[in-house]
Design a protein around this nucleic acid. Structure first.
Lengths: 341, 341
DNA sequence: AACGTTACCGCAAACGTTTGCGTGTCATAT
DNA sequence: ATATGACACGCAAACGTTTGCGGTAACGTT
């Protein structure tokens, strides 16, 4: 078995005593070709294990059937579920996927964008690096290939954006706490004005207002890095207050778990004294004791719909590109950290 | 700005009044070309924002600079850290990465293999689907492109395999328990004879023997699906025994966490009554209470070395392919679940 | 003056595929 | 008999790049 040889159209043509073009058309079911001939060609193609040289093909057709994906961090659980969805849907639609990480670096991100367009991907799926400010890089590539944003998006970029119903999800989460009888509900959010944080905060405010609960600035806490450590840190601050909150809504599972760890340390009863709700339904939310109530974000669905919209763009490029937001529904998963006793 | 136009060598040649070949050579620093000419060409190339059509290039050179990666499940944390390493190293070496999931289905796996070779990847990185029996599919593709296996490997496939020092890692983990004074150490492993499970079990046995501890068949438990649920289930079985073990070595963090959950439920003191050690240093191992002692597997390093070996194969294909195992060192991360009081 | 060498550069082929256009054959209609 | 059309197929160009080979001019050597 020779190490490296693919049968070509030429070889098939030679063997069948036909022209290359006829063989090509036969394999592509072109109406000009006789049925009998098609059969013969296809049969021999199978026998000789023919498969078209995809590079020659995309070289000619200027279509690669590859979509590029750029995410901040592939190891983030939620991200990886989105990737799962992307891979599945892309395969169904006959596309291959090349993935790269921006590591939350804007420079890396634009570098990846350039690499991808240079490579000739048909379209790009992207979740923005934190603090993406210079969107002009993105805009430039937008003129060369369609882009669909997901999760970490920016309204400054005129393209379709697939996100979850952040505001509503947060509203539901907070409302759930209110229905539990809580009325002094703290929130742990990001200082940076990220799309996600903003929306969730808005949902928090709307829920309080809707239920006529006073908004207390003191228990609205922000942190640069919304992680377990800072969740714990901010919770300790909350615990040091004269009047403690009776619930904590953390904008992120990590922060929520940090909160629980802090509460556990002081043997504060969850949810009786302080209830906790997170956001993401990460794997860890089922590990922590008590298990965490959280918002489930259907990552695979996000990935799939993002792919669908992108391929739509690829197939029929709309010259009037415009910001279009697609929202995926989330559901609140109620667990022990906010369960009615 | 036109939606889709890349400057070509021809355009550069036309503008410079040179031949296409000269322009090509100038850009590739061919010695035949005058320095001054090179400068001019490169300058204009920058100005006109030239970038070579990679498809034309790989179409001609029969080299794609793409490596394909097949993993069972991209959302598995350990896997994603390996992918991280793969992406980093590949980028450094100027390769692009296309990723696909086998979902632990052997059929899907061979399908992906075919797609990849058809696509013309320069090499394949792969972690085998569970219960991969018909390795002849893999062998067939092995004749078309180099393969390097990692994590889930099989000695039946003659290629280089990048794994961790499974046996030694398990030995160290169990020895750690022994040094803690434990001597009735249970193990939770897989029923299936996977490479990983076998090796870890061997390390367990060797540690016991080395310290003159009797091997008790009763506390050697196996399960088909080594998950949290079954870790909990098997731990309940251990707890129902007349003479309980004083430590549990779970071959997987998930199972170990299941064990801890079971122990917590019965308020059994960890590690005083029963210590627990897991395997993987997953994110969850720091979430569970008490935090889990576990074996840290440096995923990124595994990914990087796998890429290095693969590119070696690509650059200088060895016709005498042979099984070669590369072991990456692990370290034991000691946490509360096995801390000396 | 004849020749060899060197430095630069262009011609043209090749990679495998798709596709517009042309061509031949045959049957049917006029 | 000629015109018309349908049918089936081949020719050749094109996509952008790389590269072996050949060519030309200039210069140095004998």
């Amino acid at each position: 078995m020779s190490k490296r040889h693919n049968t070509t159209l030429k070889e098939l043509a030679l063997a069948l005593n036909l022209s290359i073009s006829t063989v090509s058309r036969a394999l592509n079911d072109h109406p000009d070709i006789n049925e009998k001939t098609k059969e013969n060609v296809k049969k021999l193609a199978r026998q000789m294990n023919y498969s078209p040289n995809l590079f020659a093909r995309s070289f000619r057709s200027q279509k690669t059937n590859i979509i590029g994906v750029i995410v901040p961090n592939i190891s983030h659980y939620f991200t990886s579920t989105i990737l799962k969805g992307i891979l599945e849907e892309a395969e169904i639609q006959g596309y291959r996927v090349i993935i790269s990480e921006s590591n939350n670096s804007e420079a890396k991100q634009t570098e990846m964008l350039n690499t991808m367009t240079q490579f000739g991907v048909d379209g790009i799926l992207m979740s923005l690096a934190r603090k993406t400010s210079k969107v002009d890089d993105v805009l430039r590539t937008l003129s060369r290939a369609p882009i669909v944003l997901f999760d970490k998006v920016s309204q400054k970029i005129p393209c379709t954006q697939v996100v979850i119903n952040e505001e509503e999800a947060a509203f539901n989460a907070v409302e759930h706490l209110i229905e539990l009888g809580k009325e002094r509900i703290a929130i742990i959010k990001e200082t940076e004005n990220s799309y996600n944080s903003e929306k969730r905060y808005a949902g928090y405010l709307r829920a309080l207002e809707h239920h006529g609960i006073r908004i207390r600035e003191k228990i609205i806490l922000s942190t640069e890095d919304i992680s377990l450590i800072h969740g714990r840190r901010l919770t300790n601050i909350l615990l040091s207050m004269k009047k403690r909150p009776d619930a904590i809504f953390a904008i992120t599972d990590d922060a929520a778990i940090g909160a629980i760890k802090a509460l556990n340390k002081f043997k504060i009863k969850i949810p009786e004294e302080i209830a906790v709700v997170g956001f993401s339904n990460s794997a860890s939310s089922k590990i922590i004791q008590p298990e965490l109530t959280t918002v489930d974000q259907p990552g695979d669905k996000i990935g799939r719909t993002a792919v669908k919209y992108l391929i739509d763009e690829i197939d029929s490029p709309s010259n009037n590109i415009v910001t279009k937001t697609v929202e995926i529904k989330t559901t609140l998963v109620v667990r022990d950290s906010s369960l009615r006793a």
